[in-house]
């Protein structure tokens, strides 16, 4: 495991095992892109089938969508700052930005669940129309990813607290960072093609 150690590199890249894990995680993200691609394909095909139910113009509140977007974008930024602090070997800076990231993420999940409850009260459930089925599946998959990311990151934080910054904990932190940024990348497309485009159409 300790073969091929290069201490000139940042902690997370120092061992061969770490470099392979990071590459492996990028390959996983490639598969995630395709997973979300299929959900976007379903939504694009079905997004105008309202079956007499509510339309995007009836449902979507641009103010709430913008709050969600800014929360997730800011959390992606603070997550970047956490990794930046990690590379300066500043454990407390890393933990501070990491926890802010998770609080912003939790705010996003709270907003999204509130939004879904609001829709259901207006009679827009998963069973109402093809538009809403594909909408809830796409948004729900993304929201589930964010929620799981919060749980995963919490476990990584506990490991950093217990073991300090080592090549192993640094690699785990870097990888959850990649995952977190990726969720914001997916949200950019949800914001654009689900909310904005459907409100104009």
């Amino acid at each position: 495991m300790s073969a091929n150690v290069n201490t000139a590199l940042p902690l997370e890249y120092q061992t061969e095992q770490n470099r392979m894990n990071i590459l492996g995680f990028w390959i996983f993200l490639g598969a995630e892109i395709i997973l979300f691609g299929t959900l976007f394909a379903v939504f694009s095909v079905l997004s105008a089938r309202y079956a007499g139910g509510p339309t995007p113009k009836d449902l979507f509140e641009i103010k709430d969508v913008m709050v969600e977007t800014i929360l997730l974008l800011t959390s992606s930024f603070t997550c970047g700052l956490a990794i930046y602090e990690m590379r300066r070997h500043n454990r407390n800076g890393l933990l501070l930005w990491f926890i802010i990231t998770l609080l912003l993420g939790a705010g996003f999940v709270f907003m999204e669940i509130t939004e879904f409850i609001h829709y259901v009260h207006e009679g827009a459930t998963m069973q109402t129309s093809a538009f809403l089925s594909s909408f809830f599946v796409l948004l729900g998959t993304h929201g589930l990813h964010v929620s799981m990311g919060i749980g995963w990151a919490t476990m990584v934080i506990i490991q950093i607290l217990k073991r300090g910054l080592t090549p192993v904990t640094a690699r785990k932190t870097f990888i959850i960072g990649l995952y977190w940024h990726f969720l914001d990348v997916v949200w950019i497309f949800i914001f654009t093609f689900v909310y904005l485009a459907r409100m104009v159409a």
Binding site: W26, I27, L29, G30, A31, E32, I33, I34, F36, G37, T38, F40, A41, S44
Partner: peptide
């Protein structure tokens, strides 16, 4: 890898 992922996703959606 990421570019290929986006390519497949695009083909899936556009197709």
């Amino acid at each position: 890898n990421v570019a290929y992922g986006f390519f497949i996703a695009f083909v899936t959606v556009a197709g």
